[in-house]
Amino acid sequence: MRTYNLTVFDQTGEKLLDESFTAGTDEEAKEVGQARLSEEGFNDHTHRCVSPEAKLILFHR
């Protein structure tokens, strides 16, 4: 399993969510990240999810 980081920001740049989770693949991490964003109601906020190599898996501005 690999550790991914999901971060959500408000319009001023303040972090609203900053958490790590594990997933087996980048595609699985994308699904987990999208589900987490939906749970918290952050789909329309600026967010990013990065792999352990700092590859962007999810990004919305």
Rank of each mutant, 00 (worst) to 15 (best):
E14S: 10
A35L: 12
L16E: 02
C49M: 06
G13Q: 01
E28W: 01
L37G: 05
I57T: 00
S38T: 14
N5Q: 14
R61T: 15
E14M: 10
L37Q: 07
N43P: 00
E19W: 06
V32S: 05
C49V: 10
F59D: 08
K30E: 07
H45G: 00
D26Y: 00
F42V: 08
E39Y: 15
G41M: 09
A29T: 04
E14C: 08
Q11F: 14
F21A: 09
D26Q: 04
T12E: 06
K55R: 14
F42R: 06
A54W: 03
A23S: 12
F21G: 03
H45A: 05
H47Y: 12
E28T: 05
F42P: 04
E40M: 12
T3C: 09
R48S: 07
T25H: 04
T25Q: 02
D18Y: 08
N5Y: 06
G24K: 14
E14F: 03
L58C: 05
G41P: 08
R2K: 13
H47E: 08
E28V: 04
S20R: 15
F9Q: 01
K30I: 07
T22N: 14
L16A: 01
A29W: 00
R48I: 12
C49L: 09
S51H: 06
L16S: 01
E28Q: 09
E19D: 13
T3E: 08
P52D: 03
T7P: 01
L17G: 06
R2T: 05
L16T: 01
H45Q: 06
S20G: 10
M1G: 09
L37E: 05
L56N: 12
C49R: 01
E39W: 15
G13F: 01
K15G: 02
N5C: 12
E19L: 15
G33I: 05
Q34N: 14
T7S: 07
D44L: 13
V8C: 03
L58Y: 04
L6H: 05
G24Q: 13
K30N: 03
E53T: 10
L17A: 07
R48Q: 12
E27L: 04
T3K: 11
L56H: 09
E39K: 15
Q34R: 13
L6E: 02
C49T: 08
L37H: 08
L17D: 05
L56D: 08
A23M: 10
R48Y: 10
R36P: 04
P52C: 04
C49F: 01
E31N: 09
A54K: 13
R48D: 03
E31M: 08
F42N: 04
Y4R: 01
D18L: 12
E40G: 10
H45C: 05
H60S: 14
A54C: 14
